[in-house]
């Protein structure tokens, strides 16, 4: 019954260990660059592909809704807000967790069952500092850039759909950007993406390093890490959005 609580506790303790190891030198630059490259390479194309329909769906939904209110002049702005604040970070995080995180969990998990991690510790090397810190930082950085990519592609997709399918006027769509959206919306999107990248990487590393019981254990670890990350993401997204809306009053309200 209390097992999930215990897991949450050890996961948090693991996060603190990572935080502590973050400041230990020497920083593993090579591993960081390799991992950034790797995570980017497995996430960029799926992210772009997901972002286009994401932007389009949002444009269609928001556009239709707004028409009923007779507030077409806000269509562009509303889509941008939805993409940048919500869809962007979430799509980024789902892909970081689904593509990047699962690869991290599988990699660390197979090292764990091959006893590579034990061998490292016996050689006096802390796997958290050597392997986990570079992966977490890499995931955060890639999430930051991917979020930018999703925002651009999503807004672009929304624009195309609004103009072509919903007979919006190109000028009005662009001109309405600033009507509701403001700069902090962009920042909160980026902050969210980075935090989601952090969560995805921490959970993946934790699950990978605690894989047990042969190859099946690695499969389970990958599976669990993706599911746990998704659950955490939606909770954290809710909390962050609530805090943000309290702190930064929406524009033009």
């Amino acid at each position: 019954m209390l097992k999930p609580v215990g897991t949450a506790g050890t996961l948090f303790a693991f996060f603190l260990d990572v935080l502590r190891a973050l400041f230990r030198r020497p920083f593993q630059l090579r591993e960081f660059i390799q991992q950034s490259w790797f995570i980017a390479s497995v996430t960029i194309i799926p992210t772009a592909l997901v972002a286009i329909p994401f932007g389009a769906v949002i444009a269609l939904q928001v556009g239709g809704l707004i028409k009923q209110f007779g507030a077409q002049s806000f269509t562009g702005s509303a889509s941008v807000l939805a993409v940048i604040q919500q869809a962007g970070p979430i799509a980024t995080a789902l892909l970081i967790a689904g593509a990047g995180g699962s690869a991290i969990a599988a990699d660390l998990g197979s090292r764990k069952i091959r006893e590579e991690l034990d061998a490292m510790m016996v050689l006096g090397i802390d796997p958290i500092q050597r392997l986990v810190v570079p992966r977490v930082l890499a995931a955060m950085m890639v999430a930051f850039f991917l979020n930018g990519l999703v925002s651009v592609v999503g807004v672009g997709g929304g624009y195309v759909f609004n103009v072509i399918l919903q007979d919006g006027t190109p000028g009005a769509y662009l001109a309405s950007f600033t009507a509701l959206a403001q700069l902090p919306d962009l920042y909160v999107g980026l902050v969210k993406a980075v935090i989601f990248g952090l969560i995805a990487a921490i959970v993946a590393c934790y699950k990978g390093m605690n894989a047990g019981g042969g190859p099946k254990g690695v499969g389970d670890a990958v599976n669990e890490s993706v599911v746990i990350t998704f659950l955490l993401l939606f909770v954290v997204n809710f909390v962050l959005s609530t805090i943000y809306l309290q702190l930064v009053p929406p524009k033009g309200g």
């Binding site: 090292r111 006893e115 590579e116 034990d118 061998a119 490292m120 510790m121 016996v122 050689l123 006096g124």
Partner: peptide
């Protein structure tokens, strides 16, 4: 203390 040890793990535990 671990510096005193050499350990052979079951499958060698070579870094892949």
């Amino acid at each position: 203390i671990r510096k005193l040890f050499g350990v052979l793990f079951q499958d060698g535990a070579m870094f892949g």
